[in-house]
């Protein structure tokens, strides 16, 4: 019995998924090639438009979380006493209660922190081994008179054996990106974080407010989500200070006919602990925070009060929040 066209098309989809070319498949069915070609081209266009390969860091971090959860389950199984003694009271009652409590505590403090960085964050301090800065790569920022963003939390993924999120409560929550163009960066957190290798960072943006230079009107600035992620490994070690620059950029999409849409997104290439920056609004460094250590965390001497308080930090206008995406 000859194959139906649907079956042939299905076979070609399988073959393309396995890495064969459209031509290979058309060659196998020359009698159908005229009909197949445009359909397989459409498939190719769709796959190309959505082309996406997850980063190896993200894959690795997810694998670590999976392994940690598996080990946790195994430990829980080993810790669980046999069923009968528990029922017939060979073990004292308090032991059973303790076991239940222990399982609860392990679940809560062991697994939950792996999944999400909920709960109170680390507080900033005058000195520390880590500083977090915000900067802006120049794209469409020139269209703005001001572009204020409010950052409610920072989360860093520590890829140690357990794999967990470290949450930071920013000291400075509101920044104006128009003041942070190019190498200019503003410190929003400084303090001590656990030493180790970090693979992922996200900031939680609670509001965005943009004013256009040309019209003086507020404009809607979209975000891909309220959490802006980047995967950029860095290391925090003892006796040194790591300065992580998180770079944001605003881009314009669309046309004057269809309307310009502004989008704020993380700029992975300009972010990291190996980026040069010029500190603004900081104290104790004469405005210079430049570092020159490529491909490794920069080390600078800790200076008491360095960039902690920013007296003239721009304020977010509560009434000027224009992005509905930001309202939680």
């Amino acid at each position: 019995m000859s194959k139906s066209f649907d079956d042939i098309l299905d076979e070609c989809v399988n073959r393309i998924n396995r890495g064969e070319s459209i031509e290979d498949c058309l060659g196998s069915y020359p009698e159908h090639s005229e009909q197949l070609q445009p359909l397989l081209s459409a498939m190719f266009d769709i796959q190309r438009a959505y082309k996406f390969t997850p980063s190896s860091e993200a894959k690795w971090a997810a694998r670590q979380r999976f392994n940690a959860a598996r080990e946790q389950l195994e430990r829980r199984r080993e810790a669980k006493p046999p069923l009968l003694p528990r029922i017939f009271g060979r073990a004292p009652a308090w032991a059973a209660v303790t076991a239940v409590l222990l399982i609860f505590l392990i679940s809560y403090f062991g697994i939950i922190p792996l999944l999400s960085p909920e709960g109170p964050g680390l507080q900033p301090s005058a000195t520390g081994n880590f500083a977090f800065l915000i900067s802006d790569e120049v794209n469409a920022i020139g269209d703005f008179d001001s572009l204020n963003i409010s950052i409610s939390s920072i989360s860093l993924y520590l890829s140690d054996e357990s794999g967990r999120w470290i949450k930071l409560d920013p000291e400075v929550q509101a920044v104006d990106l128009t003041l942070l163009q190019g190498d200019r960066a503003q410190e929003i957190w400084r303090g001590n974080v656990p030493e180790g290798n970090y693979t992922k960072v996200f900031i939680q943006v609670s509001s965005v407010s943009g004013i256009l230079k040309e019209t003086g009107a507020s404009v809607d600035v979209k975000l891909p989500g309220d959490k802006l992620h980047i995967s950029k490994p860095f290391e925090v070690t003892s006796g040194s200070e790591t300065n992580f620059v998180y770079d944001l950029t605003v881009v314009a999409a669309g046309s004057t006919q269809s309307g310009i849409k502004y989008i704020l997104k993380p700029q992975v290439g300009q972010s990291g602990a190996d980026q040069r920056f010029e500190l603004i609004n900081g104290k104790g460094s004469n405005g210079s925070g430049k570092n020159h250590g490529p491909k490794r965390p920069r080390v600078t001497p800790s200076a008491p009060g360095f960039g902690i308080h920013i007296p003239d930090a721009p304020k977010i206008q509560e009434s000027g929040v224009v992005s509905s995406a930001m309202a939680n």
């Binding site: 993200a58 997810a62 999944l115 989500g225």
Partner: peptide, 15 residues
């Protein structure tokens, strides 16, 4: 249509 969220959620699927 968000790469970072897709990466995160894929990890959550296995958990």
């Amino acid at each position: 249509r968000n790469q970072a969220e897709a990466e995160d959620l894929a990890g959550e699927v296995f958990l």
